[in-house]
Design a protein around this nucleic acid. Structure first.
Ligand SMILES: Nc1ncnc2c1ncn2[C@@H]1O[C@H](COP(=O)(O)OP(=O)(O)OP(=O)(O)O)[C@@H](O)[C@H]1O
Length: 668
DNA sequence: TAGTTGAAAGTTTTT
DNA sequence: CTTTCAACTA
């Protein structure tokens, strides 16, 4: 590979890849080969500089982008890639916390709370609060708690005031929230960044350990880092200063969760000796696509000046079509996709359909399904948000960490064990008063005569069940454990008992079964197929579960993804759907964070994913809560010059051969 | 304590 | 349209 380095890289990339130690900044536009520079640099360090792969750390914000890095490094250096740490900030934080969290009082088996867990914890706190009549919204509280937490990275600070009813209760709820997490041995996503910062900051030994361990840091999509992640990286780099960051201010799309572009813009101030590199040639897209992207993004102010050119030829115009509703849109996409595929003899995986919001995947999925177009959905809700799955996972979480009161209380009386609300409230309060975790309290409460006979019996069988599963945890394999959990809890019977509709009941049973397959395919592809790693992967939304619980993952499939999770990827053929006002730009985004500019960047990201051809679509009306709502074209569509577009607004897509493209509704 | 009923509310992006 | 939650009844 060394021989070809000079051939495969342009001079600027070559400079970035082969630069000796010290800070490097690559600030450049979409498709200019930033990720290529990072991955080649990793390969170069290993092959040329004889750097031990284990001492290289590459991080980025999203799972998808981390996976892309991993894949591209593996393509370059083969199996050695496994020794390089390539992950998201959060999984790096998790690693640090599992290895050294004991300094801060965390056991190795601590639990990760996702947003759902955070919200349900907050809801119980609100329920117990004396002022609960005020109808506090858990979501608002959560965003303020998270904001405050992150603000405290640089030391304790005042609670910010918003001038509403939440101001009064925030400090108290915050304290209770934090102590609950501690008591439960649980950490939330913020903690996965903030606690490692404390470890590195306050414990010189830990800091020294990681300075030794990771001697070369590389950060992709650096514009997406928030202050905590910036601090984390800065601490990790402080000894050797071998830090290479790449990014593009025009692709900053996470302002709404605290990402700060100034992290990348200030890099030269942080590291005055930084080698700064600009890349100006786009190797990805045709002229038409690049022009469209540039015309859209130039409507933003406050941009870093960047040049971008391509020699890949003009290419075909961008198609833009109007459909009647989202099902028509999906059908037309299916039809066009198949047409392009045949004409260009492309593979399914050469296509991506991108959208602003996860709900948009629904119509696409059902249409693709009936038309036998293989697809993979990135992220989205679906599987792991279903009640059945969350219940079983709560059991597994308790098995792993019995101090997790929140998960325990969720399942203590599901399936029904005769333990009612009053008993649960009593147990919870008692545990809180005596500074015990509920699990330990249960051991005595099973003989507490103030509880009903029924409840006592229920507690006994619950404890027995958990103990049994805990024993099994180390013995058998993971999928066996999940299966036992389902069987021993009598979950299937509970579903059959409580749900009258046989079809719904069967669906739920199937869902639970799918979780077993998810577990078994997990232990097949992970060498450490333990319960702990399974729960971690679930919490971090790991790529392993891309297709929910389904075991069969087509290896050649169309990608369905949000604009956010498509960043960093590229496809010969891209569809952007829902090009409508209130969706892109999204109506809810206009007041917050980056506002319209961030939405425009999102559009820019979408356009620049395409290599050869881009199709945009919009609909006349969209179903919203069972009502039809009229839609108007996105302003971004109008920012693209007419001569780059090929508009097909006139005829209904129903026009297209109905025999070829089935509608999702008329499949029976 | 368990189960039913009816009203109300939700409509963004990720870890 | 869906899900969630409070109030009610058995
Ligand atoms: N010097 C080069 N010669 C040929 N092709 C290149 C070169 N550099 C990059 N490419 C190709 O251009 C495409 C885009 O590269 P890459 O994904 O690294 O860009 P990027 O700057 O990271 O993009 P983005 O900002 O959108 O994530 C890839 O297909 C890559 O292989």
């Amino acid at each position: 590979m060394f021989v070809q380095l000079k051939k495969e890289l342009n001079p600027q990339q070559y400079a970035a890849v082969t630069h000796k130690n010290g800070p490097i900044l690559v600030l450049a536009g979409a498709g200019s080969g930033k990720t290529k520079a990072i991955t080649y640099r990793i390969a170069y360090l290993i092959h040329h500089q004889k750097v031990d792969p284990k001492t290289i750390l590459g991080v980025t914000f999203t799972n998808k982008a981390a996976g892309e890095m991993r894949q591209r490094v593996a393509a370059l250096i083969g199996p050695k890639a496994k020794e390089v740490t390539l992950c998201t900030f959060h999984s790096l934080g998790l690693k640090i916390l599992r290895e050294h969290g004991h300094h801060l009082g965390y056991r190795r088996n601590f639990t990760i709370y996702g947003e759902g867990d955070q919200l349900s914890l907050l809801r119980t706190l609100i329920r117990e609060h004396p002022k609960k009549r005020d109808k506090f919204d858990a979501g608002i509280l959560l965003s303020r708690i998270s904001g405050y937490k992150n603000k405290c990275v640089d030391g304790k600070s005042e609670f910010p005031l918003y001038g509403d009813k939440y101001d009064d209760i925030l400090p108290e709820v915050y304290d209770r929230f934090q102590s609950a997490l501690r008591a439960y041995q649980a950490v939330d996503f913020d903690d996965l960044i903030l606690l490692p910062i404390r470890l590195l900051d306050e414990f010189p030994d830990v800091r020294r350990f990681y300075h030794e361990t990771y001697q070369h840091l590389l950060v992709d999509e650096y514009q997406d880092t928030n202050h905590g992640q910036y601090r984390l990286i800065t601490l990790l780099a402080s000894a050797h200063r071998n830090i290479c960051v790449v990014g593009d201010d025009d692709q900053s799309i996470y302002g709404w969760r605290g990402a700060e572009v100034r992290n990348i813009l200030n890099f030269e101030k942080d590291y005055p000796d930084a080698k700064v590199i600009k890349l100006e040639q786009n190797y990805r897209s045709t002229q038409v696509i690049l022009d469209a992207a540039n015309h859209v993004i130039k409507n933003n102010n406050k941009r870093q000046d960047k040049r971008l050119w391509t020699d890949r030829g003009r290419g075909k115009n961008i198609d833009a079509f109007l459909a009647r509703d989202e099902n028509d849109e999906a059908k037309t996409i299916a039809w066009r996709l198949q047409t392009i595929k045949e004409r260009a003899s492309a593979r399914w995986s050469d296509f991506a359909v991108l959208y602003r919001s996860n709900v948009q995947s629904r119509a696409l999925e059902s249409t693709f399904r009936v038309n036998k177009i293989p697809y993979i959905v990135v992220g989205g809700y679906e599987f792991f948000d279903r009640k059945e799955v969350k219940d079983i996972i709560a059991y597994l979480k308790v098995v792993q960490n019995p101090r997790d009161d929140l998960s325990l209380l969720r399942i203590l009386n599901y399936p029904r064990r005769g333990i009612g609300d009053s008993a649960i409230v009593r147990l919870h309060e008692e545990a809180h008063k005596r500074d015990l975790c509920v699990y330990d309290l249960l051991k005595e409460a099973q003989n507490d005569h103030e509880l009903s006979k029924q409840a006592q019996e229920g507690l006994r069988s619950f404890l027995l069940l958990i103990e049994e599963l805990r024993k099994q945890r180390h013995a058998g394999d993971l999928s066996q454990l999940v299966r036992s959990t389902i069987e021993k809890t009598g979950y299937r019977e509970e579903i059959e008992r409580t749900i009258d509709d046989a079809i719904t009941a069967q669906m739920k049973i199937d869902t639970v079964e799918e979780l077993v397959s998810a577990a078994s395919s997990f232990s097949e592809q992970e060498e450490a197929g333990t319960l702990a790693s399974f729960l971690d992967s679930l919490s971090l939304n790991d790529d392993t579960f891309q297709n929910g619980g389904k075991k069969i993952r087509p290896d050649d499939a169309v990608l369905l993804a949000t604009l956010h999770s498509a960043k960093g990827l590229e496809f010969p053929y891209v569809f952007m759907c829902g090009m409508e006002e209130d969706l892109l730009p999204h109506s809810r985004s206009l007041n917050e964070g980056g506002g319209i500019d961030e939405e425009r960047r999102l559009c820019y990201v979408g356009i620049t994913r395409a290599r050869r051809h881009l199709t945009m679509s919009l609909v006349q009306e969209r179903n919203k809560f069972g009502r039809k709502a009229k839609r108007i074209p996105s302003r971004f569509l109008k920012e693209i010059p007419e001569d780059l577009l090929c508009k097909q607004y006139s005829h209904s897509p129903n026009f297209f051969d109905r025999q070829i493209i089935k509608s999702a509704n008329d499949d029976k």
